[in-house]
Simulated assay, not measured.
Amino acid sequence: MDWMKKISTDRMLVGLVSLIAVGMSFIYLGKGPADPEQSVQTKSALTAPANPSTKIGVLEKELESKLQTNILMMEGVGRVQVSVNFLTGLKNEYVRNNNVTKRTNKETDKVGGTRETTEITENNQVVMPSGSSQPVIAMEDRPEIGGVLVIAEGARDPKVREGIHTAVQTLLNIPSARITVVPMGGTS
């Protein structure tokens, strides 16, 4: 009978820990970022599928096209297909209107004692042009490249494959491990 109490106590403990973990995850997931601009960026990064109708999709297609054009000009490459994947979304820094107001009050009571209080008010608002719902962007960073896949007819030749790999690494300034070059299959 003692072992049954131990099993039921262990089950209750596991259930309680599981319930706490689920509750904590709801609390954590329910909280949004403190910075509203960060919230907008996170949502756009999460909901931006890699298709040409989004800014990220357009950037990916432009980069793929640029790489493909350059690789096609290399000797021995043949037909080429390039795919680019971004790790992050666009990063925007917005223009802000920073105002600091400082007000000091001196009060003297009937007995002759004085009291001085200082009130500081800071205002750090994002600048919105009149009639627009979009804030003014001070800087826009391109997303970080997660990986590049190059499929080329000439990649069976190790010299061509290495040349493509080096060209992509040089053009994008990314680590070698994020680039894969493979031979094109199928019929010519």
Rank of each mutant, 00 (worst) to 15 (best):
V14S: 00
L16I: 04
L16G: 05
V17S: 05
L19F: 12
L19P: 00
V22M: 14
V22N: 10
V22K: 13
G23H: 01
G23S: 10
G23Y: 01
G23M: 10
M24H: 00
M24E: 01
S25G: 02
S25Y: 01
S25T: 08
F26D: 10
F26A: 15
L29G: 14
L29S: 10
L29W: 02
G30M: 09
G30K: 01
K31F: 12
K31P: 01
G32V: 07
A34W: 05
A34I: 09
D35N: 15
D35E: 15
P36T: 05
Q41W: 05
T42D: 14
K43I: 02
K43W: 10
K43C: 03
K43M: 08
S44Y: 02
A45H: 09
T47P: 00
A48E: 11
P49K: 05
P49H: 02
P52A: 14
P52Q: 12
P52S: 15
T54E: 05
T54N: 02
G57F: 08
V58M: 11
V58A: 11
E60S: 08
E60N: 06
E62G: 07
E64H: 14
E64D: 12
E64Y: 13
S65I: 03
K66Y: 10
L67M: 13
T69Q: 15
N70S: 13
I71P: 02
I71S: 05
L72M: 14
M73A: 15
M74F: 04
E75N: 09
E75K: 15
G76I: 02
V77Y: 01
V77K: 06
V77R: 07
G78E: 06
G78M: 10
G78A: 07
V80R: 05
Q81P: 00
N85Y: 04
N85R: 13
L87E: 15
T88C: 11
